[in-house]
Design a protein around this nucleic acid. Structure first.
Lengths: 372, 372
DNA sequence: TTGAAAGCGGTACCAT
DNA sequence: ATGGTACCGCTTTCAA
C-alpha cells in the first residue's frame, strides 16, 4: 500500500481538474452530470477518503464538537455522552469525548487539546469552578455550552440544565401521600457543586408547604468522597422515614450502608434518588427515581450546540464587515433579530431547562408502623 | 477577538523566524537559550495554541487514536474507554471515541470518519463480523488492534483479549466446593459473538472434569435481545443449582426475572456472572463475578497500540524500500521472524491475554436443602 | 544558530 | 461549466 490517495489522484484518474473533484464532493452545484459520474467512479475505484484536516483548514470548520464530562464511567454521563454523540452524528458531526474526573487541571488539559484541534464547539459539564481553560475557550471564540451544570461567573454561557422542580415535587407528593411526616434530603457534595446546592433550595421550597418547615432536613457533603453514614444517622435521628438523594453516586454508596444498619429500603425507609441509572431499576426493591431525562438533555445540548455553531458561522462572515473590534453586541443583535425587528440588546444567554419527572417504584412505601 | 494567533504572529512578536518558533515548540534542540526564552514569552503573552491539524499534515502523525466500542453505556465498555483514554492521555495521545451499537454499518461509518481524520491507529471492539469498514482500515495501512473480541477472518490483527479460563476455573471450584452437583452456563448471544462461544468451550472443558459431562448445561442465545426466561427454565428443569452467566447484560436482564420466579439468588440459586459491573456489587446478595480486569485490558490495549504506532512509524520508512507492491507477505514474515534472530524484523505479539479472576461474593451459597 | 521556502491535501476564488 | 492557483498553519529541508 504505497501512498495515500489524494484529491489530485482522483482528478487525474477521472480526467478532470482538482477543483472539479472538490465541487462534486461538496455538492457545490455547477457541474455537468458527466463530470459528476466520472468523479464518483474514480473515487470509488481508488477508494479515496478525503482528509478532513486539510478540508477544515481551508473551510474553517471541522464538523467536530468536543464534549467534556466528569466521568464517563458514571452511568448518567455515559448516557449523556451517548445521546449527544448520537444526535451530533445524525447531523454529520463527529464528537471528541474526554473525562475531566472532576479535576480542574484534567479538564483544562483536555480543553486545551480540543482547542488544538480547532473543533467547532465545546459542550462541557464543568467542574465546580471556573477555570483558565474555560476562559481560554471563550478567548478563542469557540462556541461553548454547559450541560447539566453551571458555574458562577459564567452567566453568559448558554446552558442546558435539568429543572429539579417537577420531579422533586412529584416525589414529595408521593412520599406525602404514603403518610410520611418527615423527609430528609441528602444532597451529596452540594458544597462544591452549585447544581446540587440548587436542588437543596428547590427541595426546601417544595417540601416546606407540604411537610412544614420543622419536618424537613437537608444534609450536604463537602466532597464527593465524604462518607454518607453521618448524613443517614442524622436523618434517622431526625425521625425521617423517607430519604431523597440528590446525587446518584452518593445513593449507590449509601444503599449498602443503609442495609448494613438494618434499615430495609422500601420497608423501614422510603428511598428516592436522582438519576435513572440501571442499578436502581435492578435493585430490590426497585428504587424510585427522579429522572433527568438524560437522553433528552443530551439531544437538547447537541441541537443547541449545532445552533450556536451555525450561528457563529453566519455571524462571523456578516459581522466581519460591520463590527469594529469586538462585535459582541452585534452578535447579540443577530440573535434577537428573528423575533423583534428593531434592534435592542437582546437576551442571548439562553438557558434551556429539561423537565425532570418522578418514576414511582417499590422503594417508596407507607410509613413503618414501628417508628424507626 | 479578531483572528486566531498563528505561529507567524508568535514569530513576529518574538522577533525571530517561523522555523525558530517551530523548533522551540518541538524541542528540536539547536536554538540559543535566548531565542528559547523570547519564543516562550511570546507564546505565553499571545496565548498561542498550535493547530494540530496543520501540524499533523506535515508531520504525518496526529497523536490521536480512534476507539470503537459497541455501547458506551455498558458499564464494562465505559470502563474500557476510561482506561484506554487515560493511558493514551498519559502518553500524550488523544482519543476519538465512538459507539457502534453493535451495528455493522454504524461501526463502519465511524471507522470511515476515523479514516477521514488521519488518526494514527484504531482500537476496535468489533461487531460480530468482518466488515468493509475494517477492510478499509487495513487497506489504508492504519494500525488496527482488536480489544475484548476477535472475529473470524482477521487472524492477522493483533488483539487484547480476556482469558476466561482462570476465572471460570476458580468460579467452578467455588461452586463445587459449596456442594453443587449441577451447573448451567448461560452464555448470552454466543451464536453471534465468537468471544462468548469461546467461553462456552472453556466452560465445558473446565466443568466436565469437575462435575461430569452429564451435570453441566450450556445455553446460548441467538441475539442480544433474546429473553432469558427460557434458558433459566431449562436450567431449573435440568436441576442446576448454580448459574454462571457469560455476558453481564444478560445477567442484568435475567436477575429480575429470576426473582419474579421465586428463585432467590444466593439462596435457591447460586449466581456468578462475568464482568465486574457496579450493579453486581450493590445488589443484594452481592453477585460473585468473574472479573475481566477491564482496567488492565484497557491499559494493555492502549500500550499495545502505542507500540504498533511507534513501530509503524519506523517500519514505514524502512519497509518502503524493501516491499514491492503489497508487502503483505513481508509483514507476515516479520511476524514469525521474532523467534529467529537473523533479520532485524521486530517481534509483533499477535494475541495478548488478560487473565480473568473470580471474586467470590454472597450470591454463591451452599445447595438448598429442598431441591429447587 | 538561524531564516527562507517548499510543500502536506484540500477549498475557494478568479479566469477562461 | 471547468481549470489554474493562492493559501490555510505548520514542519522540514536546505542555505546562509
Amino acid at each position: 500500500m504505497a501512498k495515500r490517495v489524494t484529491i489530485r489522484d482522483v482528478a487525474r484518474a477521472a480526467g478532470v481538474s482538482v477543483s472539479a473533484v472538490s465541487q462534486v464532493l461538496n455538492g457545490k452545484g455547477r457541474l455537468s452530470s458527466d463530470t459528476h459520474r466520472k468523479v464518483e467512479d474514480a473515487v470509488a475505484r481508488l477508494g479515496y477518503i478525503p482528509d478532513s484536516r486539510a478540508r477544515s483548514m481551508r473551510s474553517s470548520h471541522s464538523r467536530t464538537i468536543g464534549l467534556v464530562v466528569p466521568q464517563i464511567r458514571n452511568d448518567f454521563f455515559a448516557s449523556l455522552v451517548s445521546a449527544v454523540q448520537d444526535t451530533l452524528w445524525r447531523h454529520g458531526y463527529a464528537t471528541l469525548i474526554g473525562s475531566s474526573f472532576d479535576d480542574d487541571e484534567r479538564q483544562d488539559a483536555f480543553l486545551h487539546t480540543l482547542l488544538t484541534q480547532r473543533i467547532d464547539g465545546i459542550i462541557c459539564v464543568p467542574t465546580a469552578h471556573g477555570t483558565p481553560g474555560l476562559e481560554a475557550v471563550l478567548a478563542n471564540d469557540v462556541p461553548l455550552l454547559f450541560a447539566d451544570r453551571t458555574i458562577d461567573g459564567f452567566e453568559t454561557i448558554p446552558r442546558v440544565l435539568a429543572d429539579p422542580e417537577p420531579g422533586l415535587s412529584e416525589a414529595l407528593r408521593d412520599i406525602h401521600k404514603h403518610g410520611h411526616a418527615k423527609v430528609a434530603f441528602l444532597a451529596g457534595p452540594a458544597t462544591v457543586l452549585p447544581t446540587l446546592a440548587h436542588r437543596c433550595d428547590v427541595f426546601r421550597a417544595v417540601a416546606t408547604p407540604l411537610f412544614g418547615e420543622d419536618n424537613i432536613l437537608v444534609r450536604t457533603a463537602s466532597s464527593p468522597a465524604e462518607l454518607p453514614g453521618l448524613a443517614v444517622q442524622d436523618a434517622v435521628e431526625f425521625g425521617a422515614t423517607a430519604l431523597i438523594f440528590g446525587h446518584s453516586p452518593t445513593t449507590l454508596r449509601t444503599l449498602p450502608y443503609l442495609v448494613s444498619t438494618g434499615l430495609e429500603p422500601g420497608r423501614d425507609m422510603s428511598i428516592v434518588s436522582f438519576d435513572e441509572v440501571q442499578t436502581f431499576s435492578v435493585y430490590r426493591p426497585r428504587i424510585s427515581v427522579i429522572s433527568q431525562q438524560v437522553a433528552v438533555m443530551g439531544e437538547s445540548a447537541a441541537l443547541e450546540m449545532l445552533a450556536l455553531v451555525e450561528h457563529a458561522d453566519t455571524a462571523d462572515s456578516s459581522v466581519a464587515s460591520a463590527a469594529d473590534s469586538h462585535g459582541f453586541a452585534d452578535a447579540s443583535d443577530a440573535d434577537t433579530a428573528d423575533s423583534i425587528l428593531t434592534s435592542a440588546e437582546p437576551p442571548v444567554p439562553a438557558t434551556k431547562l429539561i423537565s425532570t419527572h418522578y418514576i414511582a417504584r417499590d422503594s417508596v412505601c407507607p410509613v413503618p408502623t414501628h417508628a424507626a
